[in-house]
Amino acid sequence: MKIKIFFLVALILSSSIYFFPKTFPENTSFKYFRVDKIVSVTGKILKIRTEKSYHKRIFIILDLQEKKERKLYKIEVSPQWFYNLDLIEGNIIKVKGSLIKSKKGIILMAQSITFEGEIFNFRDRNGFPLWRGDRRDKGMMMMKGERKRKGKH
């Protein structure tokens, strides 16, 4: 009985976290991400490269050619450490992200990438970068890691 009560209390406490107000740190890239400009683009990866971006971080950039109209998009994915996809040039992917048109071309700040039946998220619904959040599933657990599962026989 006691364990049931304890479990119930733990459950309520855990669930209550969802209702906590969330504060965003300042000077992060999320403010450039506009939720009213979210589009989905399916296309072929022409090139995978890195580029120094926000706060001199090394970002993964995909040059994508859209499937139908063959428009070129520059996809800003995430910092290098967070990126955990084994993509190659020529892969067909679907990118959902915030569209920015500039003189340099069309930029898409990736919110998620869909590839071979899997969705890889990089930003939350509001455009907040997940690399500033939990690392449980992605980021540094990219080798044999998966900290969560190991050693618990």
Partner: peptide
């Protein structure tokens, strides 16, 4: 209970380089 309490307390002091995750 101590672990859960400690964890919930830490939620209030998180910062830009400090983050937490919960899974049930």
């Amino acid at each position: 209970i101590l672990i859960i309490t400690l964890f919930l307390s830490l939620l209030t002091v998180r910062g830009e380089e400090f983050n937490v995750g919960v899974e049930l």
